[in-house]
């Protein structure tokens, strides 16, 4: 299971890196989104993969992470998703503005040959 998840994160992040190195703004925003998905999954996995564990422990004594699934990673990933979503939306607006103002979707604001 760990191998499948890490492969999935790796493929997502790798595709994202390839895309943000491309010259068109659309490719960049898709790349950034793929990367943020990969990062969100990554944070989620940092609470370890558990099945059938309660989110908190009621056993007496000092609790150890082996007894319950860590709920903090889920709280972190929720915040990260919201912030990532907001900043991506903001970037999209800037992109539309750039397309309107420069007349091209190249990241430099002008076509390579022009």
């Amino acid at each position: 299971m760990e191998a499948v998840i890490s492969l999935a994160i790796g493929v997502l992040f790798g595709s994202g890196i390839w895309l943000i190195l491309r010259p068109r703004t659309f490719q960049i925003i898709i790349g950034l989104m793929l990367m943020s998905y990969a990062v969100n999954l990554f944070i989620f996995m940092m609470g370890r993969l558990w099945i059938d564990k309660a989110p908190l422990t009621l056993n007496p004594g000092t609790p150890s992470l082996g007894e319950y699934a860590d709920p903090l990673a889920q709280a972190l990933v929720l915040t990260a998703i919201v912030i990532g979503f907001a900043t991506t939306a903001l970037y999209l607006v800037v992109m539309i503005g750039a397309r309107g103002l420069t007349g091209t979707d190249h990241v430099d604001g002008k076509e390579p040959g022009a």
Partner: peptide, 17 residues
Amino acid sequence: RIRAGMQYIAINLAASL
């Protein structure tokens, strides 16, 4: 500004990740 802003935002989004 929009040209500089595009690069500024892109690199900062990547750095946030």
